[in-house]
Design a binder for these strands. Sequence first.
DNA 1: GCGATCAGGT
DNA 2: CACACCTGATCGC
Length: 691
Amino acid sequence: MSSFKGQMAEYPTISIDRFDRENLKARAYFLSHCHKDHMKGLRAPTLKRRLECSLKVCLYCSPVTKELLLTNPKYRFWEKRIVSIEIETPTQIPLVDEASGEKEEVVVTLLPAGHCPGSVMFLFQGNNGTVLYTGDFRLAKGEAARIELLHSGGRVKDIQSVYLDTTFCDPKFYQIPSREECLSGIVELVRGWITRSPHHVVWLNCKAAYGYEYLFTNLSEEFGVQIHVNKLDMFRNMPDILHHLTTDRSTQIHACRHPKAEEYFHWNKLPCGIISKNKIPLHTISIKPSTMWFGERTRRTNVIVRTGESSYRACFSFHSSYSEIKDFLSYICPVNIYPNVIPIGTTMDKVAEILKPLCRSSQSTEPKYKPLGKLKRARKTHLDSEEEDDLFDDPVPLPRRHKAPYQLTLHPEVFVMTAAQPQPEQQRQSTGYLKAEGMRTSPWANFVDCEESNSESEEELQTPASSQEDLGAVTHQQPKADVEVPQWEVFFQRNDEITDEGLENPSSSTEAGGSQSPKLFSDSDGESTHISSQNSSQSTHISEQGSQGWDSQSDTVLLSSQERKSGDITSLNKGSYRPRIKEHIPASQMEQSVPCPKETHSDLKHRNQDVKIVPSAGEPTALSSGIHIPQEKSSLNLSTTADSQSSSDFEIPSTPEAELPKGEHLQYLYEKLATGENIVIEKRKSSLLDT
DNA sequence: GCGATCAGGT
DNA sequence: CACACCTGATCGC
């Protein structure tokens, strides 16, 4: 849940995702996505009144968010004041004080956030520096490197502050299986059930919120069956989603809801009320997407857990895991990080401790926003170049880690990823956040090495860090003993232990009752079991997990999609995705892009990138004319100060000679990249520099 | 009657 | 187990 108050230190005249209190005075509003906890005050009478008195104040969001928002009658009054901004299109926004006439401008760029349909991060560039508000996001490792507009001149932009989704910024969520893994686990579970007979149906026990659409679309695509939902009119203009949904209850996959759904389910009734088809009773299983639940597990990660005779939990996350957050931050390397979410049970200080090591160290360019001022880097030797090395060591931060993500661009599968349609960018949005990361290694396999390196550093921590963050901003200051200490052994087990398939004892744990659940097989140590669903061609791996208070009588089973055939990835990418990256960054450029942006030249100069200009506020008419970005043609070049490297920033032709790693080398890279380890560096140097 | 807040639920 | 809601009770306007 967002705890963000709405304003950023650098640009206090704009409000994001909060519309109450201080935010009532904002010169412009931004909405990152359509979840209620980011819409506080958005329909309050006070704001409505202000809107009526103002000629210029507008709400900016993605086209999909606009669509979803306006589908709700409660927000209709915004209609003439919502300006949708195309994804990845730098757009100039006028910030006018209507009383004084004072005017400022800021350029905003919407970057896909991968959280739910329409969700975006906002990158702001203006006189007070470049800042990134992530909203809620889920980006896989390495994805930041593929976001063109986070770059400039072949390297990551100089970002002053990041306002970060810290929902799972906790080592207990160190690793969350990728979207693809979670999805394929669900796909196989569903397949094993609905192929039994037309009367076998699945109920996806989803919460009332946007974000499950990619699950629906992929299941629908996979089985050629539409998903039953209560409502779908909000998707009327998003065919890529709409076509996979139905309000016809006679389908085998349901995601409908009802206040008494759980009770219904107990009586074998679906939330939509049906219990049979053609007089024949239905056999139903429920699958409940969960994240926190898995975060609480004490054993290694798994994708599907059986919690009852006919009930399953499926790992599913809208938010980046701890390691994904770390990867993201270490790539963009901001000076300041402000957490947007302080989960209960934790405190600002705790989150701050975790984030601190991920801030850029160094001389700040904006002391004003750096509560801690300059920091000395007293480097502990024991921290040496393990995990966080480059984050601490270099006086001039030179996060060589950054190379790792770039390296990803050499990964063959990256090319496969995301291709969205240019057109209905609603779809692009809605499905575009599903991207294949391309890592084939099983999550745990990647960490074997690490077990050693981290073994000792279990709990220590808490260097008496000066806790003084003004706004909760965290600035890098001292080599924080990483609070991050993941408990490796808890999350990962040795490869062999897990992948081995041969030793299951077919102890049929068949369940009684009319519902035939997949058969279970426990393996010897009782720690790990295998499940094989009748029709599933693919052997799915499972492991047992302590039943922590779940249906005691039921088997607790975990499935983890062990192998994802490349086909899986492909299927994920059905739909229309837009290539996230058109060309690769030549090795030569990678070289220079590697170093953490020094505060040399600011990004204030927007190079030659096109910047759209939003008609200076005050033309609501134009805005409401149906053209979202009326100023369309007027794409101007802000960069009067454009420097040389400009326009071609992202049009660098691919480097054919940038050879793709193969064989063992590739395997090596997979493992290292997947862990975010820096080992890659050396490799990279040798392999890339010599090109 | 509405909104804000809180408790309780999934 | 606060992921993102929903319902219902209470209180103030």
